[in-house]
Structure formats: structure tokens, C-alpha cells
Design a protein around this nucleic acid. Structure first.
Length: 494
RNA sequence: GGCGCGGUACCCAAGUGGUAAGGGAGAGGUCUGCAAAACCUUUAUGCGUCGGUUCGAUUCCGACCCGCGCCUCCA
């Protein structure tokens, strides 16, 4: 079964076939680095990451490009406010964005920056002018003439036919032929960043960079273009207009858009006080893996209601999976194999694949893995998991994690980084006790813990439960959870 | 106003024209020196409301109520 994805262009779920057999070329609209990214941004980037990972698991080579918008109105305004250069300003937030993305397990695409492609953008505009699709306004700005592109509106399903007859719409305050014409290039203003180019001085409009850089990296036609749902119009519509006007060829074949999320049932906004960045959540003591799991658990086209209760639930769910893996890798098993476990592992793999093939139904993929966990745990309890069952069960778990990427437990070091960041940024007051407690466990090395566990083992051998319990309590204090099982003592960091 | 999406148990959340996945939480139980982990049982005659189509609808159609998005650079 091939992957079936919703294509915004056709408004329906279609089979996804890349233009080249074994390779997927995809472009994602990245952040404008004017501030820290918030969980809404990262919902989109995680959705794209899940897609990328699943495509790779499906056997494709991936060429994945993402832009960093490092020049725009807000950046110019904020950098001036802070008295730093645009470069200094954007460097800080680009770094923060990449750190957050890494913290959330997002694989880094090939990055392209707007400011590093200014000459190409100017060339692009020059060619559009040559072909009659763009014009220069009196102030030196350039606009795209949408009346020349009859398909304008096809992605967002908007009807612009009334302005396609070339009639000049009278708009006094603009130097545009039609109110809908969008800026390709903005003439310089005093004090603003500006570049000298073949089409004169100025800076690029927002949409231009994505057309220029995607074509440069991926070719004039490529497989998939992704972003948040708000980008459908005008951003992606404009990219299509300028790109296809220039090349005469179809731009991206698939358009992938992630839905916005709600926070505690409401639209996320600073005024409602429900606006969060990943760092905010970690400062409150939540684990990066919980955040990723929650953001990945609702299929990308559904509205996701991000709640703190949900975050706690996500943490428990991830723990359950990690515990299961621990049990698989640490247990003692009798030789042989149990056909039921073999079948279970195979079927789980198939179910996950089918779920993700179905427009990336992550909720169903999760259901499949939990079904396996429960059944295998039941078999564990009756001693009917055999040595040869372990590899296939682990493989199914790995297959899950190749896409979801939450099993590897590096939450504590990541949380520690956020704590340190808060200290350097003067945000000590925002560091919760929960975060301090969590990071505490990082102070004990594995060897330290092993030594304590050895003491515990000795105490238990002589049935000195008081001493054993005391050590356990001490470790618990330091954030280490100790479990006594039939197969011995095992521990993990909470 | 135009275009589009959604309303499923205490919470999060899949799903199907034939009788409701999964996770969390709660309750009871098994195991256990105690914990932890794990397992078992249990929690929606019901899927926003009202009509319609159908042998049969949560699933299709219509109306209404509510929430959300886009419609001048917010993922």
C-alpha cells in the first residue's frame, strides 16, 4: 500500500508518488526568526518531521529543505528596538529555534537562509519583469501582477476572477496596479536593511525566498511543499503564482498543511495567557519527550487540544513504552520461540504501517503499539515470551520509534540545558521545583547509582529490608526510580 | 459575509452504513516483605440538537446550536 496523503491542492486524499522513483524532494516553510518558537509552530514542524521519518522508513531517500526567514518587518523593527544588527538579532533566535527543534527530536533539514540568496532573488524578479508578470512601481518596489496568472487562487480555493480582466483597481495609497498584487521586492526605507542588486536597492518580499530557494535546491518541480495551514493563503498561493509564471511548469505536486492547535480548548494567544514555548514547558518541569509525544499523537489535519493534563498523560504513555522496552532488553528468557509473539510483532508492524500510510494516522499507529505492549506484557507475566521472540518485538518497537522518536531517554540532559539557559537569561524565577528535581538526578553518575544498587542487593540478601528501603528512598530523592523484580533490581531516572 | 474544518466516555483521542480503537484517570482484584512495574475486571444502549434516507446511522442528507481556521506577511 502506498502512502495516501491529503493534498491541499486537490482537497482530497491522494496516493503519494514522488516524481523520481526512490527519492522525495520536499520543502518546508521554516520559521521567521524574530522570537522564540511556540508549541503551535512546533506542532507543524513535528508533523513534517513525522512525514519525513515515515517516508524514509518507507524506503525513500529524502531531500528536505527548510528556509530560515531572517529578514522581514518584525525582525527589522525588533533589531532596531534592541539596538543590534539584523544579523545579530536573527542569529540568536535561529540558534534558539534549532535547539528547540533538536530538543523535540526534529531531524534537521538542509537549511537555507533568505539573506544568503538575495542576488538570486533579484534575478528571479528581473526575469518575471521580462516576462511581463511583474512590474516596477515608482518607489522602486516590484509587484507581481496577479491578473497575468489566471490560476491564482487555485490552492486556497479563492475566486479572483473579478480582477483578472486587467482592469485597474483604483487604490490611492498603493503604487500597485491592483490591490491584490503582492510585493516581490520592497524599496529601501531609511534605516532598514537593504541590498544593492540588479533590480536596484531594497529587500525581498516574504514569498520570494521560498520560490527561489526551493527551486535552487530541489529543481523547478518537486514533490511536496509543507507548512502551517495559515500559509495556504497568501504565502503558498503567491509562491505558486511567481514560480509557475517563471518556469511554466508545475511547482510543488503535493501541498501538505498542518492544522493549528488549541491550548486548553482555546486559541493560543499571549493575551489569554496560554501562549507557550517548549522552553516554558520544560521550565515547568515537563519533559521534551512528553511534548513531542503529545504533539505527535493527534493526526496533523485534526485540531489538537494541547492541555497540561494531556502533557502528564503523554509522559505516562512514554514511560509505559520505555518500561516495556526495558523489560524486553533486561529480562531472562527461555530458549525457543512463541509463534503468537512472532505473529504479534509482525501484525503490529503491519498495523503501524497501514495507519501511517493512511494520511499519517498517528493515533492509530500508537494504538497498534500499545496493543502489542499489552499483549506481550500479558505473555511476560505467564512466562510465555521466549528468547527468540525478543528481537521481533524490539524491532516493532524500533519501527515505531523511527517515526515517533520518544523512546530514547535523553530528557534529563535536555532539561538541564534549558535550566542553564534560564539562568543565563535571567529567568531563574521561572525555574520550577519540578525541573530542579528532575535535573538533580543528573548529578549521580550511572556508576554511583550502580554502587548504591549493589548495597541494596547486599542488604536484601541478608533480608535487611530497612536498609534496602532507606537506599531506595535516598535514590528516589535524587530522582532515581528503583524497581525490584523477579529478575533482580532495576533502576531508571524519572 | 465568502470558503473550509470539527463537536465521540471524567480527560486526551481514533473510527465505521450493521451496532463504539488506544492512552490517561477512577474503582475492584492478582502479584509483592513494602514499593514500583505488569496483568485482569470495570467506567459511552451511546457518538452536539432536531428531522430525513435506510432493514439498520455515530457513520449519508438537511436544518439548527457551539467551537476553530483562512479571507492584508500568525505554524
Amino acid at each position: 500500500m502506498p502512502l495516501r496523503l491529503f493534498n491541499t491542492m486537490s482537497s482530497q486524499v491522494e496516493e503519494f508518488h514522488p516524481l523520481r522513483d526512490s527519492e522525495v524532494r520536499m520543502y518546508a516553510c521554516g520559521p521567521t526568526v524574530y522570537d522564540y518558537g511556540h508549541i503551535g509552530n512546533f506542532r507543524t514542524f513535528i508533523a513534517i518531521d513525522l512525514l519525513r521519518r515515515f517516508l524514509r522508513q518507507s524506503g525513500y531517500k529524502i531531500q528536505h529543505v527548510m528556509n530560515i526567514t531572517d529578514v522581514d518587518d518584525k525582525i527589522i523593527r525588533n533589531s532596531a528596538r534592541d539596538g543590534v544588527t539584523v544579523q545579530q538579532y536573527t542569529a540568536k533566535y535561529e540558534k534558539a529555534f534549532l535547539e528547540d527543534a533538536a530538543m523535540l527530536g526534529i531531524e534537521q533539514p538542509t537549511l537555507v537562509r533568505a539573506t544568503e540568496h538575495i542576488p538570486e532573488m533579484a534575478q528571479f524578479v528581473a526575469k518575471l519583469v521580462e516576462k511581463g508578470f511583474a512590474y516596477r512601481a515608482d518607489d522602486g518596489s516590484y509587484y507581481f501582477r496577479i491578473a497575468k496568472f489566471p490560476r491564482y487562487g487555485k490552492l486556497s480555493k479563492k475566486d479572483f476572477s473579478s480582477m483578472l480582466d486587467g482592469a485597474r483597481v483604483d487604490v490611492d495609497e498603493y503604487d500597485k496596479d491592483s490591490a491584490r498584487d503582492f510585493a516581490l521586492w520592497k524599496a529601501p526605507k531609511p534605516g532598514e536593511a537593504s541590498w544593492d542588486t540588479v533590480i536596484g536597492p531594497g529587500r525581498p518580499g516574504w514569498h520570494l525566498e521560498c520560490s527561489v530557494m526551493s527551486m535552487e535546491e530541489l529543481g523547478e518541480s518537486f514533490d511536496l511543499h509543507a507548512g502551517g495551514e495559515d500559509l495556504i493563503f497568501p504565502h503558498h498561493e503567491n509562491e505558486i503564482a511567481q514560480s509557475e509564471s517563471l518556469t511554466g511548469k508545475p511547482f510543488a505536486h503535493f501541498w501538505f498543511h498542518a492544522r493549528f492547535l488549541l491550548v486548553e480548548g482555546e486559541k493560543m494567544s499571549k493575551s489569554l495567557g496560554n501562549f507557550f514555548t517548549p522552553r516554558d514547558l520544560v521550565l515547568k518541569g515537563h519533559k521534551p519527550s512528553s511534548i513531542r509525544y503529545l504533539l505527535a499523537s493527534v493526526p496533523y489535519r485534526n485540531q489538537l487540544n494541547f492541555t497540561f493534563d494531556g502533557l502528564k498523560q503523554a509522559a505516562v504513555s512514554v514511560d509505559r513504552l520505555r518500561n516495556f522496552r526495558l523489560r524486553l532488553s533486561a529480562g531472562n528468557f527461555a530458549d525457543g520461540s512463541n509463534p503468537q509473539m512472532q505473529t504479534l510483532a509482525t501484525e503490529t508492524g503491519d498495523r503501524m504501517r497501514a495507519a501511517l500510510d493512511d494520511d499519517l494516522n498517528t493515533a492509530q499507529a500508537q494504538a497498534a503499539i500499545f496493543e502489542m505492549v499489552r499483549q506481550a506484557n500479558t505473555a511476560f507475566d505467564t512466562g510465555s515470551v521466549m528468547k527468540d521472540d525478543v528481537p521481533p518485538l524490539l524491532a516493532a518497537l524500533e519501527k515505531f520509534d523511527e517515526v515517533f522518536a520518544v523512546l530514547h531517554d535523553d530528557d534529563i540532559p535536555k532539561m538541564k540545558q534549558v535550566l542553564q539557559w534560564a539562568q543565563t537569561e535571567g529567568r531563574e524565577k521561572d525555574i520550577s521545583q519540578e525541573l530542579r528535581d528532575a535535573v538533580q538526578s543528573a548529578h549521580l553518575s550511572d556508576a554511583d547509582i550502580e554502587a548504591k544498587i549493589a548495597d541494596m542487593r547486599a542488604a536484601r540478601t541478608s533480608r535487611d529490608f530497612k536498609k534496602s528501603d532507606a537506599i531506595r528512598a535516598e535514590l528516589a530523592e535524587a530522582g532515581i526510580l528503583v524497581e525490584i523484580t523477579k529478575d533482580g533490581i532495576r533502576w531508571r531516572r524519572r
